[in-house]
């Protein structure tokens, strides 16, 4: 055995209190590297699925469906596809990372470090938000490149992507905290998130729906965020853009606060 004593470290500044910025940065980067290291599962699939939608709808349905709000059908659905990718990726990243950490005993390792619950939860949220934004931007780029989609309000578009990614990453945090198995996460996605996304008007304008279904769609928050992005990219449906923005902000704040509070309380994480 090598008996040389390893070099001692100087006093740890974190012991003195204050925000553990280095810890926060480290965990955030870990979360980002984590999904990037498996990009075939976390980045490519959304891009492929979106390309398939574009090709199938572009080649087949577009000829039969007239333009909606003055834009071709394929271009009309693209902001919806982007939002679908943003939401599912942001949300999946955080929920699965938390669950994985719980199942692999890594959460315990993290909870005994001098990081606050706030620092840990924000790191997870940002990790998921970055994945959401990257996925959203890639599908946006796909739209620009293959169907010549215009981006009318680029800054608003980016802002919206970040906001919604953050919000649904926060929702992922909440689910990750409650989830005890992969089944729990899949159930929430299959029976809750995916239906809400599809009914939120990814593939159609809710104006096409009968009154009853249209009114029902109005209580689906995802409808607003899709609408908001549609306005930011295509400049259509501008009348409700403020409402969309407000819903997105509210949802983001709500999910973030609930997620952070649950983490702080240690629900299903600490005994």
């Amino acid at each position: 055995m090598n008996t040389q004593k390893p070099e001692s470290l100087k006093k740890l500044p974190v012991a003195e209190g204050g925000i553990n910025w280095i810890g926060f940065r480290t965990l955030t980067l870990r979360e980002i590297y984590r999904f990037l290291s498996v990009y075939r599962q976390t980045v490519i699939p959304g891009l492929v699925t979106s390309a398939l939608y574009i090709i199938i709808f572009g080649l087949t349905l577009q000829r039969r469906i007239s333009a909606i709000d003055g834009v071709s059908y394929t271009i009309y659905i693209l902001p919806g596809l982007i939002m679908m990718n943003v939401i599912t990726n942001a949300y999946n990243n955080t929920s699965s990372s938390i669950l994985q950490m719980k199942l692999l005993q890594q959460m315990q390792d993290l909870l005994i470090t001098p990081m606050s619950s706030m620092e840990i939860s924000f790191s997870f949220i940002i990790g998921g938000a970055v994945r959401g934004v990257i996925n959203g931007l890639l599908v946006l780029l796909l739209g620009i490149l293959i169907i010549d989609m215009p981006v009318v309000h680029p800054i608003q578009t980016l802002l919206f992507l970040i906001l919604v990614s953050w919000g649904f990453s926060g929702a992922g945090l909440i689910l990750g905290i409650f989830a005890e198995s992969w089944d729990n996460i899949a159930t929430m996605v299959n029976f809750f998130i995916t239906p809400l996304i599809f009914l939120g008007g990814v593939f159609y304008s809710i104006d096409m729906l009968p009154a009853f279904w249209r009114n029902l769609s109005m209580i689906n928050p995802i409808y607003y965020v899709i609408n908001g992005l549609r306005y930011s990219i295509l400049d259509i449906g501008g009348s409700t853009v403020h409402l969309s923005f407000a819903v997105a902000v509210l949802m983001t704040i709500l999910f973030t606060v609930i997620g952070v509070v649950l983490f702080q309380k240690g629900t299903r994480i600490k005994q």
């Binding site: 740890l12 910025w21 280095i22 810890g23 965990l27 590297y33 984590r34 470090t113």
Partner: peptide, 18 residues
């Protein structure tokens, strides 16, 4: 599942503010 042991040690140090 994701990182090498050396990387994990750097993360660990980071959590402690190093």
């Amino acid at each position: 599942w994701f990182f090498t042991i050396e990387r994990l040690l750097y993360f660990q140090a980071g959590y402690y503010g190093i």
